[in-house]
Amino acid sequence: MRWQVQEAKQRFSEVLRAAENGEPQIVTKHGEEVAVVIDIAEYRRLRGESVGLMDYLIADPVDDIDLDAEIGRSAEQPRDVDLAG
């Protein structure tokens, strides 16, 4: 979503709510993008900071994973391993 500065100021709670829901909010000034409001967990992830478990789970990292994707498996036979000796 894109917001002009004045509108973002007037509807800041809505901007924050959308950012918390994982929707980056772009703020423009005189038609140029000047800022983006993102969820704090995403900000920390982008900065390479460690994220606590709750923040990680709230950010829903599984949402980006295609759970129906085919998983390639090796057709090679397993090798024999001698565990006795």
Rank of each mutant, 00 (worst) to 15 (best):
L16W: 01
V34R: 14
V62Q: 04
F12W: 05
V27K: 00
R17H: 11
L16P: 06
V51H: 04
A19S: 06
Q6Y: 14
D60L: 08
L83E: 08
E23H: 09
Q10T: 01
L83Q: 09
W3P: 00
V27W: 06
E23A: 06
G22P: 07
G22A: 11
E33D: 04
N21C: 03
V15K: 01
V5G: 04
D60W: 10
R79T: 08
V34S: 03
A18I: 04
R73P: 10
R2W: 11
R47T: 03
Q10E: 02
R47W: 09
I58E: 06
V34Q: 07
D60Y: 04
S13G: 15
L67S: 10
L53W: 09
P78N: 00
K9M: 12
L83P: 00
Q10I: 00
A59T: 08
V5R: 08
R47I: 02
Y56L: 08
E70H: 10
I71C: 11
A69K: 12
K9S: 04
R79M: 07
Y56A: 03
E49S: 06
E23N: 05
P61R: 13
T28S: 04
Q25I: 06
E32Y: 12
D66S: 01
V81S: 02
A84G: 09
I26H: 04
A59N: 07
I65R: 07
R45L: 14
W3V: 02
V37E: 09
D68E: 12
R73S: 14
A41K: 01
I26P: 00
A8R: 02
A75N: 13
I40N: 09
D80S: 03
A35K: 11
G31I: 00
L83D: 05
E14W: 02
D66F: 00
D60F: 06
R11Q: 15
E7D: 09
V27H: 03
V81M: 07
D82C: 03
I38K: 01
V5K: 05
R45H: 15
V81A: 08
I26Y: 12
P24T: 02
A19Y: 00
R45Y: 09
V34E: 13
